[in-house]
């Protein structure tokens, strides 16, 4: 079997799956965790601010952070679809390149 790493052109489905999993489970997850980690800001709020307005700000901050985290999910879905589209196009081309008699 040919070694994919030495190919000039082509795709490898297993590697595509591994690539997308790495993006989703590592890069995306780490970024989302960082976005949702608002405790540092809330602690500084507690040290410098008192009142109902502070509590509402903290609550809204968490909602805002979740909104941004949701956008990262949407962006990953776009990336996922694009990568899979490239793979599908290459697979279809491979299938139709030579017809069997």
């Amino acid at each position: 079997m040919a070694d994919f790493s030495s190919m000039e052109y082509g795709y490898n489905s297993d590697n595509v799956d591994t690539y997308l999993a790495a993006i989703k489970d590592t890069a995306l997850q780490n970024a989302k965790s960082a976005i949702l980690a608002t405790n540092g800001i809330k602690t500084v709020c507690d040290d410098n601010w008192e009142g109902k307005a502070k509590e509402n700000f903290k609550s809204n901050l968490d909602k805002d952070a979740q909104h941004i985290a949701d956008q990262l999910d949407s962006l990953f879905n776009i990336l996922n679809d694009e990568i899979n589209s490239v793979q599908a196009a290459m697979a279809n081309k491979d299938e139709s390149l030579i017809s069997a008699d």
Binding site: E8, Y11, T26
Partner: peptide, 20 residues
């Protein structure tokens, strides 16, 4: 957050899955 987003490209490369 931006530091984590900058790790996106270093986590994995499309060239691991596609050649050309």
């Amino acid at each position: 957050v931006n530091a984590k987003l900058d790790e996106l490209e270093s986590t994995a490369s499309p060239s691991d899955a596609f050649k050309g």
